[in-house]
Each structure stands twice: as structure tokens, then as C-alpha cells.
Design a protein around this nucleic acid. Sequence first.
RNA 1: GUGGUUGUAGCUCAGCUGGUUAGAGCGCUUGAUUGUGGUUCAAGAGGUCGCCGGUUCGAAACCGGUCUUCCACCCCA
Length: 461
Amino acid sequence: MAQKPSIPKGTRDFTPSEVAKRNYIFGVIKKHFEIFGFQPIETPSFENSDTLMGKYGDEGDRLIFKILNSGDFLNKVDDATYISKDSTSLTSKISEKALRYDLTVPFARYVVMHQNEIDFPFKRYQIQPVWRADRPQKGRFREFYQCDADVVGADSLLQEVEFIQLYDAVFADLGLEGVNIKVNNRKILAGIAEVIGAKDVLIDFTVALDKLDKIGAEGVKKEMSDKGISVDSIAKVEPLFSLSGSNSEQLSTLKELLADSKEGSKGVEELAFIFETVDALGLLSAQLSIDVTLARGLNYYTGTILEVAAPQKVDMGSIGGGGRYDDLTGIFGLKDVSGVGISFGLDRIYLVLEELGLFPETLDQSLQVLCLNFGAKEALAALKLTTFLRKSGTKADLYPSDAKIQKQFKYANNRNVPYVILIGEKELAENSFVVKNMESGAQETYNLKSPEDFIHQLKME
RNA sequence: GUGGUUGUAGCUCAGCUGGUUAGAGCGCUUGAUUGUGGUUCAAGAGGUCGCCGGUUCGAAACCGGUCUUCCACCCCA
């Protein structure tokens, strides 16, 4: 080995078995996206920098991968900028493109650019990789796939209900029991901030509140006071830390608390409608609950906020999230188009399914049948049989060389092939083939003239 | 971006306060087995000790830098 090759930090190679499992998850998600009437789109892996920059806050800008201009990019930089060594002003001169950071902003750009050809409400889904110059951690990478479904041009809260059903359908299909779909509303958060007199520090307030289950009530109180929220105000929010009871009980508590806030009351009303409607429809396996501490993606969510928590028995946190953003396309000049959408966290779902052993066993079966190679004449007969099996849709292969039978068997074993077919001198003379079940070890002889008998048997199982 | 952590055979990892020729298990190759895998037994191959520099008579071990891994924070899927 000359020089050990490597891949960039936070990126991964996927083995055949990993790809099979990932495709299984993609397939299930995609199936339900389509059943719910969403249409796929794709957007470029990189966008013009000004499409992305400034859309995710200062923190986001830092995490966007910038692409260096082609050609002699330094030549166009004036001396003053070059000498000042100011990264921000220099970056805009030497880089005009950047890698996609999420799928939502490019989608908003897409909607604005194609507004005259789109029939609203427009339901689209998109499954593509995105890139972030983040420092990797468990379940967090610098290149990862997002699976998003969004609706634009529909104000109705029925959309929120539909997304809750969609989450439920996907996780039920994946066999993942005990997921908890948590719902909140930006208006409720704004209302709380208003009632306690912390309206001007809404973001700091919610970011602190969001950490409740992580750093505890005391930690939240400390962070809030660090951010300049008064002791009085903090005392007023304290009841929220221990909000308990059924969803409807929590709703009435909130209603009371927010009675003086017009915006907050609206949020409670919206939340109540969603819960009533979902109750009337029923869910397959997911739990639905109120979580007023939920405060993700505040940069653009304006109404409902959704997050899906993995089953409690696995230590994984959020495996999906979403919400309503009333003015996303506004930043690209198209006003009054409401959007709501959700995202599935593929990598984390993968880790959860792996930990709980929920992947179907057949995924690892890249081959159903392997014909052993006993030499030129026998191999020809085996290849005929292989061709026949392939035409019937069976994943079949012939070992390419007449290596030792022991070695060929070992190969079949390592590849997890359930059936091995032997056509040796004896079988050739008798115009037959032997099928060995690799799990039980049982062998059965079939006639080469009627291989469909074997296929029939194969499909019975 | 901040703090910590990790790197030794294909994989998982030992390797003592710095001291001969760097080990184990699994895997791999070959044989026991010229038409039967998983179990067993025997033999064998495989390592610039992440990379660069420094200290030392002597470095896998100590020091500095760098890359990488994982973790916490920031933020986020």
C-alpha cells in the first residue's frame, strides 16, 4: 500500500448492505409521500451563494460550504480587500456558488422561479443530499440526505393534520413503535413571551426553553436570566416547566395563561383544532403530544412546529421535524404563499431501526440462487438455468470459474445465498440439477427440462 | 467556532516507568477433505505503530504541529 487513501471528515462510504437498508427506508418514505399525493422535484447540488447566504442566520452562513470560483479567482480581488484579510468580504469576491445546505430554501427558490407553471396548492417531495461544514457527532455528518415533503399555497390546518398522518403512516410501515409526534406553535411561544414581558427576546427565550429536557428547569432559568430576562418574567413561565396532564388539559391551561395575548390565543386555537381533528381520525401507532418547549427552526417557522421523538427505549432524540412557514417565498419576492412541511432524518432512523433490529432480513439477500461451476460443459448448462431463473425475476448467478467446490460454497455462505445449485458430471448425464438449502442443508433434485418446478417452489416460500 | 478524546495487521483491540525480533482474537490463504459451506484441527501470509518534526545512546510509548475518530458545547437533521 503506497499512500493510505481517505475520505473527508464527516463523509461516509456505504457498503452494499448499508445501501440496501438505506434504500429500504427511502422506499418506504417515498411510497407514502406518493400515496399522500406529493410529487418529486430535484434541485441542483449547488446554488448561487446569495440564494443561500443569510437565510439560516449567522450560524448557518458559517456552516455553508462555499465553492471557489473557477479560473484565476484571486486576480479579481482588489488589493484593499486582499490585504485586509477580512474573510467575509473576501469570500463574496472569490466564491459565487455554495453547496445546498437544506432542501427548504432551494424549494422556496424553485416555487418562485416556477410560480407560473405550478398549480397551487403544490405538494412536492424531495430526497437529496445536503452539506454542512459542521463538526461531526453521533448521527450528524457533513454530507447527509434529507427527505422533505412540503405543501405551498394552502393555509388550511388540515395540511398539518395530513403531515401528522404521514409521519404515522411511515413509522408504522417501518415497524417503529412508540414514536412521539410533538406539536407546538410559534404563536404560543410568542404569546408566552408577550405575557411575561419578554417579547423582544423571543428567540433567546425559546432557545432556552427548548433545552428543558436537557439541562433541567434550573438550567433553563439560569440561561434565561443570563440572557437578560427578569426574575419576575421567569417566575411567570415556571408553570410551563411542569405542564402535565392530557393534551386537552394542557390546552386549557395554556388557554388560560395566554388569555391576554391575541397571538397566543390564536396559537392555542390552532393547536386545539389539530388535536381534535387527529383524534377524530385516529393514528396507527404514533403518539401525539403537546410540547411547549419545542422551538426548532425559529428562523422561519411561523405557526405549527412539529418534531418526532424516537421511541424512549433508544437514546436518539429527534428523527424528524417540520412546521409551517407563512412567508418563506417572501425572501425571493413572492408574498402571501403559506407553506408547511416535514423532514425525515434518514441517518437517525437508520440507527434506530438497526438498534431495534427492525430491518427485514431479506434486505441482505443480494442473491437468491448461486449455481456452482464444475467445469466448461457443466457451466454451460448452469448458465442456461441461470438465464432462465433471471428471466423469472430470480436474483441468480453462476460462479465464474471452476474453483474448488469448497471455496465456491464458502463464497455462497459469505454472501448469504439461501440456495445453491449443483450441476456436476452426474447431474449433466441425468439432465438434472440439485438444489441445496443452505440453512437446513437439505438437497433436492429437479429435472433440467422443467426448472419452473423449482421456481414455483421458490415462490411458495 | 470552543473544550476534551482517539489513531498499532483487513476488522476489534493488547503492548507496563522509554530498552532485543511489536502481539492476541476474528477474518484471509493453504492443507486435513479431487462433489458439499457454517463446526473442528494444523500451517502460512499480512504492520513505514495516522502523518511531519523534536527530545534521547535508543521512541509505538515522551514533547510540538497536523490530519482523523468519537464526545460535550454552539447550532442543528
